[in-house]
Design a binder for these strands. Structure first.
Lengths: 225, 225
DNA sequence: TTCTACTTGATTGTCAGCAAAACTGAATTC
DNA sequence: GAATTCAGTTTTGCTGACAATCAAGTAGAA
C-alpha cells in the first residue's frame, strides 16, 4: 500500500506535453534522458519511450546521438497544420453525422460545461486540457480509430503552435464556439456544424502572432515541478 | 572489414513494411520480438523500436503485454484514409506551387522514369516502393516536414489497405498518371495538377473492393449465431 | 462430459551497467 | 588573436539478464 507504482509512460508524456503547452518548456530546450529519469524517478528506458511518443506527436525532435529537443515549428508548418486540421475535422463532423447517439450529445454538452467552468475560474491547466479534449472527443465519437489518432497528433501540434505563436493572454479556443458547434450537431445540422467548425479553426489561427521565437529557458526542473 | 554493422531500425521497418505490402505477412499475424530479433540478428530493443515505428505508421497494432500484430483496417477506416489523403495531397501540390525549382522537376521526371521501367519489368517490389515514393517525393519537394511526415504515414496506411482490399492482380498506382501530374507541375498548371491528383486517388480507391467484409472470423461467428 | 483451478511454456516489460558518441574547456600552434 | 587539438566529462545507444504477464494445456471434481 505504501509501495506506489512508478509513473507510466503516458503520464510522463502528458506532463511534458502540458509543460510545453503552458510555455514552461520553451522550443529548443533539450530534454535530457538522465535528468527526466531523475525528475520522474523512473528508468531511462521509460523516458525514452515517452520521448519517442512525443516525437510522434510532433512536440519533440530527436536527433540521433544528440538528444531530444522541444520542437520549433515554422510559420509555414503552423499554417499547414491548420490546413490539414480543417480537412480532418470536417471529415470528423461528417462521420459523426452518420451515427451519433443521445448519449454522445450528452457527453459533448457535459464536456462543454466543464470547459465553461474552467474558463470562468481561469484554471489555465484545465482550460488547455479541456479545449483540446473537446476536439478529441468529437474524433472519438466519430468512431474511427484512424481519425482519432490523426486528431490526437494534430491537437498536440496545435498546442505547441499556440504556445509559441499566440500573443493574447487568454486562450482563444473558447468554450462558446464549442457550445455552438455542439448545438448544431444536436439539432442534426451537420453541414452547419462543419461550417462553424471551419470558422472556429479560422478564428484560432487568426489570433496567432508571427513574430520570432523568444529566448530559451534552461530550467528544466522548475518547468516540470 | 569482416565486421559488418548491424541492421538499422529503419531497415527493419522497411523490410517488414514491404512484407506486409507484398501480402507475405497477413493481417492478424503476430510479430514476435524474439523471432524478429533472431531473423535480423539484432537485440530485442531495436526490434521494439521498429515495432513502435510501425505502429505509428498504422501498419501494426501493439497490445500491451500481448505483442504486436499486423493491422486489419476496416472498410470505413480505409475510406477515411483516402479522404484525408486527398486533402493532404492537395495541400502538398499547392505548397509545391509556391517554390519549385528546375532540379525538382528533373527529380520527379527521373522518378517517374524509374517507375516506368520497373512497371515494364514487372518488378513487384520496386513497383510498390516507387509508387509510394512518388507521393513521398512530392511531399519532400513541398518543403514541409509536417506534410512529409503526414504523407509518410498515409502512404504506409494506404499500402496496407491496398494489400488487404485490392482485387486486381496488378498494382493500380500506375506511372502514367504520375507522369501526367508531373507534366502539369512542370508547366506551372498547379490547379490542374491538383485536379489530376484528386482523380488519381479516386482511381486508386475505386479499384479496391471496399464492399466485401474481409474479417472471416466475424463472418463465421455471425453465420453460426 | 464439462467446468474450474492450476501448472507450464512462452512472450513481453523493465532495469542496471557498459560502450560509443558528442560536448566542454584549456592548452597549443599558426 | 583565431583556429585546432586533445583530454575529461556528459549524454545517448545498446546489450543481456531478470521479473511480470499471458495463453494454452492438464488434471481433477461435479
Amino acid at each position: 500500500m505504501t509501495e506506489q507504482a512508478s509513473v507510466s509512460t503516458q503520464q510522463i508524456v502528458e506532463k511534458v506535453w502540458l509543460s510545453i503547452a503552458e510555455r514552461r518548456l520553451r522550443p529548443g530546450v533539450q530534454l535530457k534522458e538522465g535528468q527526466l529519469a531523475g525528475i520522474f524517478d523512473v528508468s531511462r528506458a521509460r523516458i525514452r519511450q515517452a520521448l519517442t511518443a512525443l516525437e510522434r506527436e510532433g512536440l519533440v525532435t530527436i536527433i540521433p546521438n544528440r538528444g531530444a529537443f522541444v520542437c520549433q515549428p515554422s510559420v509555414d508548418e503552423a499554417r499547414d497544420v491548420f490546413t490539414v486540421r480543417r480537412s480532418v475535422e470536417a471529415c470528423v463532423v461528417e462521420r459523426i453525422g452518420n451515427s451519433i447517439s443521445k448519449a454522445d450529445v450528452a457527453r459533448l454538452r457535459n464536456h462543454v460545461a466543464l470547459e465553461q467552468t474552467a474558463s470562468a475560474r481561469d484554471a489555465t491547466t484545465d482550460i488547455i486540457k479541456l479545449s483540446g479534449g473537446f476536439h478529441l472527443l468529437l474524433a472519438e465519437i466519430s468512431g474511427s480509430d484512424f481519425l482519432f489518432g490523426m486528431m490526437r497528433d494534430l491537437i498536440s501540434r496545435t498546442s505547441l503552435i499556440t504556445a509559441v505563436y499566440r500573443n493574447t493572454a487568454r486562450f482563444n479556443c473558447g468554450p462558446d464556439e464549442h457550445a455552438e458547434i455542439v448545438e448544431e450537431i444536436a439539432s442534426g445540422s451537420f453541414k452547419k456544424a462543419a461550417a462553424l467548425m471551419a470558422h472556429h479553426l479560422d478564428h484560432v489561427e487568426a489570433e496567432l502572432d508571427l513574430r520570432e521565437v523568444r529566448d530559451i529557458s534552461h530550467d528544466l526542473r522548475a518547468a516540470l515541478a
